[in-house]
């Protein structure tokens, strides 16, 4: 009973704020609405007793990526300015894409929900199991993907440093001076 009520509240929050996120005219407000969606999703995980996933959702999406989003929006020109929303072909085509994506993933989820439901009823995963499955090399253990992703992240970090680094001896201002 209680669980169902909480689920419906969370579902309504997710739907309403998702729509608000794409329809809001202020970029920063869209980001805030998206944040509410992410937090409500985390609430769903909590409802399912997926504590680890809940914490990851909060830490990575709500606490990490949203902060970066908001910081990036701060740095844009006139972050509070309203966007002009015209029903151009871009909007229409992206709406069509979104709906088709929803249909495809919805179809897949409904088809496979019976298979997944088996996992959901299990007890909470212990942290040890989780760690072993991430760092193990046996069946259903994912060391290789884990490492590949970390290499990808490393490449991103190195790239960021390369962009942000000051080029010594190759300063454009100095060149101007020479001329």
């Amino acid at each position: 009973m209680a669980e169902q009520i909480i689920f419906y509240i969370l579902a309504i929050v997710i739907v309403v704020f998702s729509i608000l996120a794409v329809s809001s005219k202020l970029v920063i407000r869209s980001a805030t609405y998206l944040l509410f969606v992410l937090i409500a999703t985390a609430g769903l995980y909590l409802l399912l007793n997926f504590h680890y996933l809940f914490a990851v959702q909060i830490a990575v999406y709500a606490g990490g990526i949203m902060v970066l989003f908001i910081m990036a929006i701060f740095l844009t020109h006139k972050p509070g300015a309203t966007m002009n929303q015209r029903m151009s072909w871009k909007v229409k085509s992206s709406a069509a894409l979104a709906v088709s994506g929803l249909l495809i993933s919805g179809y897949i989820i409904i088809k496979n929900v019976v298979k997944v439901a088996g996992y959901l009823k299990g007890d909470e995963l212990s942290m040890q199991d989780l760690g072993h499955s991430m760092m193990g090399t046996q069946k259903y253990q994912y060391l290789l993907p884990f490492e590949v992703i970390s290499v990808l992240l490393l490449a991103c970090i190195v790239g960021a440093i390369l962009i942000a680094r000051k080029e010594t001896g190759n300063d454009p201002k100095e060149n101007v001076k020479d001329k």
């Binding site: 909060i58 709500a62 949203m66």
Partner: peptide, 11 residues
């Protein structure tokens, strides 16, 4: 959990 939820405050 604690590190995750306390990161919400900065928003």
């Amino acid at each position: 959990y604690v590190t995750a939820v306390s990161s919400l405050g900065i928003i």
